[in-house]
Amino acid sequence: MANAHTLRMVDYNQNSEVQALAASILSELIKKFAAKILVHLAPNEILNVCEYGCATGGSSIAPIRAIEELAGQRKVVIIMNDLPMNDWKTLETTIEAKFPRIDFKYLAKTMYSPIAEEASIHLGYSCFAQHWLDNGAPTGLSGDALWANQLPMNCLERQSWEKASRDNWTNKLLLRANEIVPGGRLIIHIHSSLNCGNLSENFAETLRKAKFQMITNKELSPEQAIDLHIPQYCKSPAEIFNILCTPEMSSLWQMEEAHYQQLPCDELFEQSNIKKQIGFLKGFLDSTLRTSLNQLQINRFWDHVSQFASNDSTALTSNGMSTFISLKRLG
């Protein structure tokens, strides 16, 4: 099992172009606002950084490089945080050889818990992490939906997922407010939905069709169909900013800059390459599929996906919506 898990995580790094694109955009915000932090640090003061949800490092390189370039000869300590089942060996191999002057620390626990000591972090950042729900799926999903965003807005199941995501977002902001020093920054990329709450990625609809086909062919039991879901909830701009604009959050965080945009994956990646796109999707979905399907069923699922994509070069495109935010800790 360990070897299979390691292989999956290595595959994630090798199929993380979309994550790396978002990280490169996030890095521009890091360059801009980390520079403002450094102005107020004494020349010999250590720059303390934390990456929340680092995965295996593929999308960490651009942000770390931006931080290193800004810091110059200043000592930098970066806490790399992710869940205990993360492939920590691959993470270390990916980043430590590239950044020998940086002191890395590794912390295996959920980001929805305290990560650092009170007022100890100057710069926190997170890329492609906040849409994954902390405690997994709050309910099963009816019909052929794989994401709660594919259910109607008035559906009780969807509303429970929306609440779980809202609670996660609130909790994360409160936890980071305790850890980040006054004047420090939290810079985040949030994988988002369209402003109507639906998903913009074509691949999500194609995967929904594959689930429907398996239900139709009786390749899934009724219980498996309900349990076959991805524990992500992509928030709309309103769901993100409404929390930030509450009196409680406004007293803790000043929103300095925000961008809501669709990632231009079509312009940068060969998204019509079905084999490559399925590799990308497997990199972050297969571990979830294994919780409800056996290997034969997983193979059948991807067979259906391939068939639906074979006559449509846009069927697996990943042009998702993204929200980039820089928050300044008040106090």
Results as ranks from 00 to 15, higher is better:
43 P>A: 05
8 R>M: 10
279 G>V: 07
139 T>V: 09
33 F>Q: 01
140 G>L: 07
315 A>D: 00
250 S>K: 14
113 S>M: 06
153 M>W: 05
249 M>N: 15
189 H>A: 14
272 S>T: 09
297 Q>C: 13
22 A>Q: 12
107 L>D: 07
228 L>D: 08
11 D>W: 07
251 S>H: 13
293 L>H: 13
154 N>K: 10
54 C>N: 04
266 D>G: 04
28 E>M: 04
30 I>K: 08
300 R>P: 02
134 D>V: 12
132 W>L: 03
202 N>E: 01
166 R>N: 12
20 A>F: 02
188 I>E: 14
7 L>Q: 15
263 L>R: 03
118 E>N: 13
266 D>Y: 02
92 E>F: 06
68 E>I: 01
319 N>C: 12
243 I>G: 08
126 S>A: 11
291 T>L: 14
133 L>H: 06
10 V>L: 15
236 S>D: 06
269 F>T: 01
31 K>V: 05
305 V>F: 00
241 F>I: 07
11 D>H: 11
35 A>L: 04
127 C>T: 09
109 K>C: 09
313 S>G: 10
296 L>E: 15
211 K>A: 08
146 L>H: 00
159 Q>H: 03
262 Q>K: 12
273 N>G: 02
267 E>Q: 13
127 C>I: 07
173 L>N: 09
186 L>K: 01
68 E>T: 04
329 R>E: 04
276 K>N: 07
66 A>N: 08
267 E>C: 03
66 A>T: 14
110 T>Q: 03
294 N>L: 10
89 K>W: 03
127 C>V: 10
46 I>W: 02
99 F>H: 10
236 S>A: 15
221 S>K: 11
41 L>W: 01
15 N>A: 04
75 K>C: 11
19 Q>R: 11
72 G>E: 11
206 T>K: 00
50 C>E: 02
281 L>Y: 01
20 A>C: 12
28 E>D: 10
40 H>W: 05
199 L>W: 00
45 E>I: 06
320 G>F: 00
82 D>T: 05
239 E>T: 11
291 T>Y: 06
69 E>S: 13
253 W>Q: 03
283 G>S: 15
73 Q>P: 03
116 A>V: 04
53 G>Q: 11
15 N>F: 07
294 N>D: 15
89 K>T: 14
46 I>Y: 04
141 L>S: 10
271 Q>E: 15
271 Q>F: 02
216 T>I: 12
55 A>T: 07
204 A>I: 00
116 A>R: 03
13 N>T: 08
264 P>D: 01
208 R>P: 00
140 G>Y: 09
180 I>S: 03
159 Q>S: 06
268 L>N: 05
61 I>L: 14
73 Q>N: 14
40 H>F: 10
10 V>A: 12
161 W>P: 05
291 T>Q: 14
51 E>R: 05
100 P>G: 06
295 Q>T: 15
256 E>M: 13
241 F>M: 13
197 G>N: 01
84 P>Q: 09
